[in-house]
Design a protein around this nucleic acid. Sequence first.
DNA 1: TCCATTAATGCAAAATACGCATTAATAAAT
DNA 2: ATTTATTAATGCGTATTTTGCATTAATGGA
Lengths: 288, 288
Amino acid sequence: MDLQRIKYFLALAEQLHYWKTAEKVNITQSALTRQIQSLENELGLQLFERNKRNVKLTPAGKFLKEKWEVELSELAYIHQFAKQIHLGERGIITIAHPDSISASIMPDILAKITQAFPQLQIKLVQVLYENQLDFLKNYKIDLAITRDITSEQGIKSQKIYSDHLALVVPLAHSFKRFEDLSTESLKAQKFILPTKDEGSSYSEIIQALFKSYDFVPDVFLHSEFGSTIIALVRKGLGIAILPDSYMHHQSPGLRFIPLPFKTDILINWRADDHNPVLANILKLVFDY
Amino acid sequence: MDLQRIKYFLALAEQLHYWKTAEKVNITQSALTRQIQSLENELGLQLFERNKRNVKLTPAGKFLKEKWEVELSELAYIHQFAKQIHLGERGIITIAHPDSISASIMPDILAKITQAFPQLQIKLVQVLYENQLDFLKNYKIDLAITRDITSEQGIKSQKIYSDHLALVVPLAHSFKRFEDLSTESLKAQKFILPTKDEGSSYSEIIQALFKSYDFVPDVFLHSEFGSTIIALVRKGLGIAILPDSYMHHQSPGLRFIPLPFKTDILINWRADDHNPVLANILKLVFDY
DNA sequence: TCCATTAATGCAAAATACGCATTAATAAAT
DNA sequence: ATTTATTAATGCGTATTTTGCATTAATGGA
């Protein structure tokens, strides 16, 4: 059944006049007549009662007019919706990101996305470092924002930001400025560090930092969660090294001493992901 | 847009394989390819991601598959429903009938209708005698069951039943049998009669009855409502003449004395009413 | 009775859909 | 690396469907 026929029917059901209706829908009266006839044949029921002079809806026709009107609007709405999905203006995208940037660049990125595509649904999830790529490959997430460079096949990456590492100490601590740091004074500190992940580029940078001062740190606790680390430092249990993105979190009682080491933030996605939503988001984020 | 195309799409979205799908829907693979292509063109979006080896739904395609499946079932249901209306198995019909038969033939008729067409909705209304034909002509009711013969143009009638008139008296009344009636004894009675409607065939029969006894009755009250009349008779305010259909009402304390006068019950409908529901009901009622 | 209006129909042209055969691309097998 | 099997796309001629034009038939109103 052709929807065009239903549209013709609805027009005629409104006008109840073949000539006027035919003109309105831009076909000839004979074409309209035959469209209605074949629609009636196809349905196996009569839509109009008509003599050579008058046109009137049958009860079944009246019923179909009401129902089909609703149905056509619904189909139009579905089409509209699908088009938005096609253009990447609508849909769901799941993003994993490290806690560290949840108060720095994430709000900016999210603001940009929701402004450009207000219909988009974004799902933010926290995923352990080690699971990120697996989740990405297994379609559990669509985007992973990481501090690690990956060379995994089928995953594409792009650097979108980089921030400095910072030494995080309580306000009362003797370290006030970068110049206060020395191999001797550092040796005396207890450190709280991110989970040591072999081969993780983020860990490597921290290791490089310690190597530059030529000492092995006294690490008494590892945690993957920055907010946990910060709480521990505030309690005076030790000092930490974190990306200075954490400065954007509200963290009274702490001092961030910037260090001359940078850590990159990368965005990762499936190379074969053709979801238009993804393309739009990537475009936005690259411009960032 | 042709619904057949959507059906092809849904089949392909299920199988994700052109050859198998083409076979399943009984067209060749080339035809299927082109149907999908033209559907995509028409919609202005891509439904499948495909290379020469694999077929996969795009996000928009996945969305449309889900939605269109629902929509097609809905359309099929609507078609089904419309067909029932066409066959007169479904719909609403409004019937006006006199109070007198609400306990006699109406229950039989209604039982017959609902048994034959369980999907049918019947609306029973009480309409004043004088308004019945107007309501019928103005599409406020579809069927009028009356005791009056009408010669109105555009209205068709058919006699479906006839019942006797009966004299209605309190049990204690001196009239016990038809033989107790005489001109003398009748003259002494106070009568409660239906509203005298000039030209009404029902009234005429009652007038004929009185004429046969050659006297003019002492009528102290007219009412159009049989149940009112019965209540008044029971209270001893007078005696009445009613169709013996009222015997079927539960009316303790009353005696019905059948009279040798008959009153017809007719069913009336618009001559130009082609509602299939009506045709079905008429067929049933005529067989009654 | 005649006239104006209006839906249906015959026919040819245009548009569309279809099937057959072939092509091009790609994954799996050797 | 090469071959083979599989599979979606495409060119082309044919069949089907739809359309417009002109005409017809029916009907209500003057």
